[in-house]
Nucleic acid binder design. Structure first.
Lengths: 346, 346
DNA sequence: TTGTACGCGTTATCAA
DNA sequence: TTGATAACGCGTACAA
């Protein structure tokens, strides 16, 4: 009974035949063309439903040269930060009638270049770059610059001077520098005197966080320069190694590149008997939900992930419609103090 | 200088003109047809590169009726479990030359139905369903049953008898029942006597975990039936409420539907002064990385997320190639004991 | 070994 | 208000 005679897809012509009109009438009726008479439209719609007609997106986009599809290049779908931004992006895009094609780049330049090609082959109407190694500059040299947005780029896009950046349309970023500044101020104000920065090598956003931390600390505590340590992106899987990487003597406060590293550091310190926050204060970055559930809670700079994603989609889709890309947008971050950087005792 | 004169896309014909051959020769040369002479191929490739020719996927798929595209319907991209599975799925698909179109369903049936339509419009070669409310049955009634895989379905797909399931080709699942069984055995064996299950309403996989827990407990501790509590999917944002939901008197062990709930419960108990694991043992489910970093570490049933995703992609793509869908596959889970369910003291 | 001709399913133009 | 026709860019059967 389940003969493999592949059931050829129902087309406009089939609906036309069933209704007794021409294919163009069906096309117009289904696209809501106002000059189709009401009974005709009703008949067409009934037939389309009865045959469960599904329009062929390939044929349409071949004809109209638009796909209502956006390509989003994500560094790593398994990363909660990227996942949250991607989810918000897709939700906003969907609300505006766009479909999102996701590709992961895994911080591999070759993969990312290839992903761009895939987007172009599929004729996307716009492209969103989320983290990763592909610079805005390179992407824009390969395709229409007015249809690419970048979320959270390196500080080197556009000019940047101490957190104030200017002139890079299509860039949606969070104010990492302000977040780092707040964190350092907090640590110094609560009596911490030897600060370290635990970074992740090769992440574009690592640079601005580290450099800002260094600069702010220099302004506030000139005699004790920032101790900088760089780890691999997978380092947080091994808490002991993370704690060990800090070296001796231990600093009394550590700002981490992201929350996972912060959580791993807390665990590593705990395992060697160092108390957080009494001996060492720990601050993370990103504001993933688990920071609130940790014991003690992890102080962190909260990136507005949902807004970043939604705003990126909105900006891109409006640019697709209008032909001009909106200006660079910087969203504020929030620094949340929790137990991991509590003042001394408690 | 940046005149908006849209730079018409380079086509096969353009490359042909530049090379001085016909379009079909270009097509053959670029697709590696063996009967194209070497110098011709080289010339074509040079011209294609020089013009930065990008093939038009819409035109191709219109012609060959294949897109080498797979649609994956994910319940929630922001959920770490789904993100991990999706990432592995995409990686495997990419390695086999397929592009993945992701859509999120947010556990909304209407949205999921619409997502299916989008996939069909785009002419995907296959569909993967990850969690969500859309049953395998409904999906298969709307499209080619032999090109749909489901990851982690409700236990009601196919027949299931105490963890043994049979006869549902295209289903890739983890052995949740075995994981729950191991967890309950562990809790009973370490002296816990009043057990509770903290579930999430409306999640397909909640049923099998809860029912298995109840059945296994009945077999092992008939005099103390499982205390079942159902929470909303967002409940974990409020740790106090989660702890409160357990009621009085507190059970001495709680199995949670997922790790987020487990982490929230630990935090909520801590905030009201209840000790984990001394007073209450807590066990999570999924094995997200944060369980290892929590304090104490959260015991959990580890779902093989990466394998689930990769295997789903492999199964689906092989079915697309061969025309027959492989049998149901159940991957083993691992139960990891950590501090949160330690025996009594420590 | 290469070129010619056709059709995939749609929409837009033009004519009726 | 509706229908016939052409074209979007590609792959392939057939002819050369």
């Amino acid at each position: 009974m389940s003969q493999p005679e592949r059931p050829r897809r129902v087309t406009l012509a089939d609906v036309a035949r069933a209704t007794g009109v021409s294919a163009s009438t069906v096309s117009r009726a289904l696209s809501g063309d106002p000059r189709i008479t009401e009974p005709t439209r009703a008949a067409v719609e009934a037939a389309a439903a009865a045959l469960s007609y599904i329009p062929n997106a390939a044929a349409r986009s071949l004809r109209v040269r638009r796909t209502r599809t956006i390509g989003m290049l994500v560094a790593d779908l398994a990363d909660p930060v990227h996942g949250q931004i991607a989810a918000a992006f897709q939700a906003e895009a969907r609300a505006r009638g766009f479909t999102v094609l996701f590709l992961a780049g895994y911080y591999d330049h070759e993969v990312e270049r290839r992903a761009l090609d895939v987007f172009l082959e599929h004729g996307v109407d716009g492209i969103a770059l989320l983290s990763g190694t592909l610079g805005l500059h390179e992407a824009r040299s390969r395709w229409r610059p007015d249809r690419i947005v970048v979320v959270q780029p390196d500080q080197r896009t556009g000019g940047t001077a101490r957190g104030r950046s200017y002139g890079a349309p299509g860039v949606i970023r969070s104010d990492d520098a302000a977040g780092v500044t707040a964190a350092i101020h907090h640590l110094v104000a609560t009596g911490r005197r030897s600060l370290a920065y635990l970074g992740v090598e090769g992440r574009p956003s690592n640079g601005i966080r580290r450099d800002t931390a260094r600069a702010v600390l220099r302004d506030n505590l000139p005699e004790a320069p920032l101790h900088v340590v760089g780890l691999s992106s997978e380092a947080w899987h091994d808490p002991d190694a993370v704690a060990l990487a800090l070296g001796e003597p231990l600093p009394d406060a550590v700002l981490c590149y992201n929350d996972m590293l912060g959580l791993a550091l807390m665990d590593g310190l705990r395992r060697r008997g160092t108390r957080v926050p009494e001996d060492v204060a720990v601050v993370g970055f990103d504001g993933i939900p688990f920071t609130a559930l940790a014991n003690p809670g992890l102080s962190t700079v909260v990136t507005p992930m949902a807004q970043l994603g939604a705003l990126a989609a909105r900006t891109l889709i409006e640019a697709i419609g209008s032909g001009t890309m909106g200006p660079e947008l910087t969203l504020p971050v929030e620094f949340i103090v929790r137990g991991s950087s509590g003042a001394g005792a408690r």
